[in-house]
Design a protein around this nucleic acid. Structure first.
Length: 356
DNA sequence: TAGGCCATCTGGTCCT
DNA sequence: AGGACCAGATGGCCTA
C-alpha cells in the first residue's frame, strides 16, 4: 500500500530524491539485504508444518511423485479428514508431506522470506526518500513511517492549495495544513521549522539588498538544516541551537521546507487543529559531519538563545499575522545565518536543496 | 514497566 | 508454479 502511494502520488518527488539517495543509502541497504541471514527461522516449525500452512504445502505438490510411496501413515496425519469441529476443506486433496517435500517447502519459505525482506527494505528506502522531501528532515532522527506519510500527504495538499490559489499562503494556514493529523512531536517540529524559516525571511538580507527574496512563484522554498539528536526525546537541549517555541525550548536538527509566508503560526487560533504539544527535542548539538553541512544547500547556525514565553503562541513577522507580535521581541537573535537565495524556476527551486 | 516503533517471519490471496 | 502483496504475530529496542 505504501509503495502504491509513492508510485501514484510522489513519483516525481521520489525520482528527484533518488538521485541524491541512491548512491548512499540504497546501496547500503541492498548490501545489507544481500548479506542478511534469515533470522530465527524456526527449523522445528518448518519440519513440522503448521496446520494453517496446508495451502502452501499443497502448492508445492505435483513434482514429486517419487515420494508418493512414502509412509501411508503420514497421509492420515495430514489428510483432509480433519474430523472434530473443523469444517472439511475443499479443493484438491492435500498431498502428503514427505521429507523431500518438507525440504522444498523450507527452501521456498526461506526464499519468500528473503524476498519479503528485500521488499520491505525497498519500501523503507522509498520512505527515506520521502522523508527527504517533506518538511523537516533529519538524518539523525527520522520521522516515523506513519508521520512521514501524514506529513507528506499534508505537504502535497498544501502545495496543491498554493497552486490553485496562485499566491503565497498564510503561514498560519500553511502550518495548519501541514500539521493536520500529525502527532504532537511532529507538529512541534514542523511548527518550529516554520518559525525559524520565517525568522530568516525577516532577518536575512538578500544579496540584492532587499530584505527578503520573494520570488514571483509561490513555490519558493527555503530549507534550513538544523541539528537534532532525537525527535522523540524532548530533553535534548544543548548549549547551542535551542530556541523556544510556545514556551518550550527547541533545538534543531531538521531541514524544513516552506513556501514563503508573511504571518506567523498562531497556536491559539481557533483554526489551529493541531494539538498543542509538549516540548520536542531539536537539539543543537552538532552531530552531523561537516560534509552533511555542505550537502545542505541552506543551512542555519545559531548560538544558543532561548526565549521563554510560556503559554504564548508563536508570534513573529513584520505583519504580525494573527498573533500580531513583532518578531524582534520573540525571536532570539541569530548568528552566522547562512541563507541562499535562488531565483530558480518553481520546481527546481522546490527541490534544489535536496540535491545539493 | 508500558507503549511506540520497527524488522522479520509467516500464511493467505491474487496475478502472471 | 512462483512472485508480489498484504496483514497478523512476534520479539527487540528505546524512551518516558
Amino acid at each position: 500500500m505504501l509503495s502504491r502511494l509513492f508510485s501514484e502520488v510522489l513519483p516525481d518527488v521520489q525520482r528527484l530524491a533518488a538521485d541524491w539517495v541512491e548512491d548512499n543509502e540504497n546501496e547500503d541497504c541492498k548490501a545489507k539485504v544481500g548479506e542478511h541471514e534469515p533470522c530465527h527461522l524456526g527449523e522445528d516449525e518448518l519440519d513440522e508444518p503448521q496446520e494453517g500452512s496446508s495451502r502452501a504445502e499443497s502448492e508445492m505438490a505435483g513434482d514429486d511423485d517419487e515420494d508418493d510411496e512414502v509412509d501411508e501413515a503420514e497421509e492420515e496425519e495430514c489428510g483432509d479428514e480433519s474430523g472434530g469441529d473443523k469444517p472439511k476443506k475443499r479443493g484438491p486433496k492435500k498431498r502428503k508431506m514427505t521429507a523431500a517435500r518438507v525440504e522444498r517447502s523450507k527452501v521456498r519459505r526461506l526464499k519468500a522470506n528473503a524476498r519479503e525482506r528485500v521488499r520491505m527494505h525497498d519500501l523503507n528506502s522509498a520512505l527515506d526518500n520521502l522523508r527527504k522531501v517533506v518538511p523537516c528532515y533529519s538524518k539523525t532522527q527520522k520521522l516515523s513511517k506513519i508521520e512521514t506519510l501524514r506529513l507528506a500527504k499534508n505537504y502535497i495538499l498544501a502545495l496543491g492549495e498554493i497552486l490553485r490559489n496562485g499566491k503565497r499562503p498564510d503561514v498560519v494556514t500553511y502550518v495548519q495544513m501541514l500539521c493536520k493529523g500529525l502527532s504532537q512531536p511532529t507538529t512541534n517540529l514542523v511548527a518550529g521549522c516554520l518559525q525559524l524559516n520565517t525568522r530568516n525571511f525577516l532577518t536575512e538580507p538578500c544579496s540584492d539588498g532587499t530584505r527578503f527574496h520573494m520570488p514571483s512563484s509561490p513555490f519558493s522554498v527555503h530549507a534550513y538544516s538544523y541539528r537534532c539528536s532525537r525527535l522523540s526525546s524532548p530533553h535534548y537541549q544543548t548549549g547551542t541551537g535551542v530556541l523556544n517555541l510556545r514556551g518550550h525550548s527547541y533545538g534543531s536538527g531538521y531541514e524544513a521546507v516552506y513556501p514563503p509566508g508573511g504571518t506567523s503560526p498562531d497556536y491559539s487560533s481557533p483554526d489551529y487543529e493541531g494539538q498543542h504539544s509538549p516540548p520536542v527535542c531539536m537539539s543543537g548539538r552538532q552531530q552531523e559531519s561537516s560534509e552533511t553541512d555542505r550537502n545542505y544547500h541552506y543551512s542555519m547556525h545559531y548560538s544558543g538563545l532561548t526565549t521563554s514565553r510560556p503559554g504564548h503562541s508563536l508570534s513573529f513577522g513584520p505583519s504580525g499575522g494573527r498573533s500580531g507580535g513583532a518578531h524582534s521581541e520573540n525571536i532570539p537573535p541569530f548568528h552566522d545565518v547562512h541563507l541562499h537565495h535562488d531565483r530558480a524556476p518553481p520546481y527546481e527551486d522546490l527541490n534544489a536543496f535536496f540535491h545539493n
